[in-house]
């Protein structure tokens, strides 16, 4: 479903702020796979998701979704295939518009927006049913603006909006990180439910080792813009969060010596 081959990305190339975020990343995700992604801070997880979503074009390499090369397609052109939920609950919805209007916007994904009154009473009823399934009591607040909702409610709605038009790929970037534990649990529950019901190909970034192991069919670990560990479902069953943490600790220890020295050498000689 997703084929990423040799993708490189440098931000602010040539300036003092240059960041080499993706360094020849390869990743192949099969249809229906649910991949959880872990990695150190700044290892390029979000950048990977942004690359798939089309927020920028990679400097090198190709990205294909469902067999179509989308390397140069812009974000809105991929929106019919790819849906996403951001870490920031404020980003996924329009705060000044009502719940129903936001859902309606999501329903327009992949189609054209004409000047017609598309948000009909029947549509509203449909949205009400969908919102009811979130079990957050939002079915009575369809006309309230998003700005009046809590972060958890917003994130659940964003998730609902993301899966509304049956995308092929779902991208979740630490979408529960900004939530309180109770809301986070509810959103995770919904995530699992949506992904399993629809068999969506999913990439989910998380900082919770437990989540990474509990959820999904595969886990990858990223470091310095590359995938350094690819853990299959069978392996996942055997691993504990402690094992993963140990792996991180190892990385950090190693990093101090080798990477710093490597960097210095690179600067001096390359």
């Amino acid at each position: 479903m997703i084929e990423i081959k040799g993708v490189h990305k440098r931000f602010n190339p040539g300036s003092v702020n240059e960041v080499y975020a993706l360094r020849g990343l390869d990743l192949s995700v099969a249809d229906g796979e649910f991949v959880t992604i872990i990695g150190t801070n700044g290892s390029g997880k979000s950048t990977l998701l942004n690359a798939v979503a089309g927020e920028f074009q990679p400097d090198e390499g190709t990205i294909a979704i469902a067999g179509r090369d989308v390397t140069v397609a812009r974000e809105f052109q991929r929106a019919a295939l790819v849906a996403r939920v951001f870490q920031n609950p404020f980003l996924g919805t329009v705060p000044g518009m009502s719940v129903a209007e936001n859902l309606h916007l999501a329903s327009l994904r992949g189609g054209a927006a004409w000047p017609r009154l598309g948000l009909t009473r029947r549509r509203r009823e449909d949205y009400r049913d969908r919102v009811r399934a979130l079990e957050m009591g939002l079915e009575d607040r369809l006309e309230n603006t998003i700005g009046t909702l809590s972060g958890g409610q917003r994130q659940a709605l964003t998730l609902l909006m993301a899966v509304m038009n049956a995308p092929l790929v779902l991208l979740l970037d630490e979408h529960t990180a900004a939530l309180d534990p109770k809301s986070a649990a509810q959103v995770i529950k919904l995530t699992r439910q949506f992904v399993e019901d629809r068999g969506l190909t999913t990439l989910m970034v998380t900082h919770s080792m437990r989540q990474a192991l509990d959820l999904g069919t595969r886990t990858i670990m990223m470091h310095r813009g590359q995938v350094i560990e690819d853990i299959s479902l069978a392996q996942k069953r055997r691993l504990t969060p402690e094992d993963l943490l140990e792996r991180f600790a190892e990385l950090r220890r190693g990093e101090q010596l080798t990477d710093d020295m490597l960097d210095q050498l690179r600067r001096a000689y390359v």
Binding site: M97, A113, L117
Partner: peptide, 23 residues
């Protein structure tokens, strides 16, 4: 209030979300 109008308002208020939603 139309679909187009909603898309316009979304673009004004949250262009990142609009773009992610195919606008």
């Amino acid at each position: 209030r139309t679909d187009l109008g909603m898309v316009m308002r979304a673009t004004g208020e949250n262009p990142r979300m609009a773009s992610a939603n195919g606008v």
